[in-house]
């Protein structure tokens, strides 16, 4: 599976993400410049973490108007696989490829630490290699990860099983304490209704090798690769 990692001014996880796909997963991966109109024939587009455009205005608000985002939208509309990690998730929300928006973390702190996630839906193209309710240890690093959606949207997301991951405690319970950033329903990651776009705040590329303290992020990449 050929991966394309989009680079915006201010992206800072693009190199790590390329490394994870190339070196850890052994897949071809290229970087895609946000100003181009060329997806280079990739099978999956990845919007990496970072601070595109310095997070000015709102996280992801400027990046969504980058020329390449029009191609990414068309790619997604045709059923192409799109993964947004952290700032990439925020861009997908601003772009409207995923429902909802991000608010500042509940305690107004930048949070950088491992969290425990529970797999909520194991039938998505991003989670099919993980058993439902499996716990994953993957780090977060963000200021604006407090997921919000209006009540009727939230109901639809839940009813359709679009929640991919929730923040939970070590026992797998979605408690208020485990909800590090204050997200509605402890939502850490969600897919679109069609299931070909995933946004998640935690960084699977930072949990892809034993040396990094966790390999739990690999199951997401393995799931994606297995769908081709």
């Amino acid at each position: 599976m050929k991966f394309g990692v989009v680079v915006f001014p201010g992206s800072n996880c693009d190199a790590d993400t390329l490394y994870a796909f190339r070196e850890v997963m052994g897949q071809p991966a290229v970087s895609l410049w946000h100003k181009d109109h060329d997806l280079a024939g990739v099978d999956c587009v990845v919007l990496p973490g970072g601070f595109s455009y310095g997070d000015y205005l709102r996280s992801g608000a400027i990046a969504r108007f980058s020329p390449l985002m029009r191609d990414v939208r068309e790619f997604a509309d045709k059923g192409g696989l799109v993964l947004g990690i952290c700032n990439g998730f925020q861009v997908l929300l601003e772009l409207g490829l995923l429902p909802g928006a991000m608010l500042r973390n509940k305690h107004l702190k930048f949070l950088c630490r491992p969290v425990t996630l529970r797999v909520e839906n194991d039938r998505t193209r991003f989670t099919r290699r993980a058993r439902k309710e499996r716990l994953l240890s993957i780090p977060i690093a963000h200021f604006d990860g407090n997921y919000y959606a209006p009540p009727e949207t939230l109901r639809e997301i839940e009813d359709r099983g679009q929640v991919a991951f929730r923040y939970v405690d070590a026992d797998g319970r979605a408690t208020p304490e485990a909800n590090v950033n204050g997200s509605l329903n402890n939502i850490a990651g969600l897919v679109n209704a069609r299931g070909n776009v995933l946004g998640m705040m935690p960084h699977p590329e930072r949990a892809a090798e034993r040396l990094l303290g966790s390999e739990d992020g690999r199951v997401i990449f393995e799931s994606m690769i297995s769908t081709l």
Binding site: L57, R58, G100, A101, Y148, P150
Partner: peptide, 8 residues
């Protein structure tokens, strides 16, 4: 379209 996010 740009300055405000109408969702929030």
């Amino acid at each position: 379209k740009v300055l405000a996010n109408p969702i929030i």
